[in-house]
């Protein structure tokens, strides 16, 4: 469902050119749970941003759901982000001025759902992450783990096919991290494709497949871990 070929991304400032991705190629099938690891600065976030249509690519091709998405205009990109992709960020990225209910509501409004439909989806997804009693709380009134669960509820309320997570447990202690990962595993089992960037090798075995990024490419040196294959072998 995600197919990148020879994607490169160059950041240009007045003085430096940074090749954040070079000839990056990757295919992810529907229903996969892929973890992305690699040293700091290797291009993981850049990859995720391009995959999530948050940034343009410099060259190469990117197909999502069989459609070339590298040439879309801003309106179409916004729409793909809104309908097909859910984002989970390291720093939760809830909107501080809005309560939990309104936070989850944000992408649904851009989607154009009517009020009853939005309400149903918001309540369902907040219930799903176990925060049904906190709907009118502000983000600042929740723990980090709870905030990240709200972020997951927000990402899932629109029922995206595709969930992108950048260090979703980076700001959480291990107990909270576990509960978030349990949730992601559950979501993946229910059919959502997940790509998760992480530093922590301990999380890698949660995923069924790991790719290792180094220097802006899917590393040749370290073989992709196909945990499912290993288990089978």
């Amino acid at each position: 469902m995600l197919n990148m070929k020879n994607v490169s991304k160059v950041y240009r400032t007045d003085t430096v050119e940074t090749h954040a991705l070079r000839e990056f190629s990757l295919t992810v099938e529907e229903g996969e749970f892929v973890s992305v690891t690699g040293p700091s600065g290797s291009g993981k976030t850049t990859f995720l941003n391009i995959a999530g249509l948050l940034e343009d690519l410099t060259s190469g091709t990117y197909e999502l759901d069989g459609r070339d998405v590298s040439q879309l205009n801003d309106k179409e990109r916004s729409r793909v982000r809104n309908e097909k992709i859910g984002f989970i960020f390291q720093s939760f990225n809830l909107i501080p001025e809005l309560n939990i209910f309104d936070n989850v509501d944000v992408p649904l409004r851009y989607r154009g759902f009517d009020a009853p439909e939005r309400k149903r989806r918001i309540e369902e997804s907040i219930e799903m992450v176990g925060l049904g009693s906190r709907m009118s709380h502000l983000p600042a009134q929740l723990s980090g783990g709870q905030q990240q669960r709200v972020a997951i509820a927000r990402a899932l309320a629109g029922e995206p096919r595709f969930l992108l997570a950048d260090e979703p447990t980076g700001n959480l202690d291990s107990q909270m991290a576990d509960s978030v990962l349990d949730l992601l595993t559950e979501i993946n089992t229910a059919g959502t494709t997940i790509i998760m960037v992480t530093h922590e090798l301990g999380l890698v075995d949660r995923a069924r497949r790991n790719i290792f990024v180094r220097d802006g490419r899917v590393s040749d040196g370290v073989p992709e871990l196909h945990l499912a294959d290993l288990a089978a072998g």
């Binding site: 982000r81 909107i95 989607r111």
Partner: peptide, 11 residues
């Protein structure tokens, strides 16, 4: 964040 969640520029 709003843009990432699907807000267009006009929105």
């Amino acid at each position: 964040i709003r843009r990432a969640l699907g807000a267009t520029r006009p929105a």
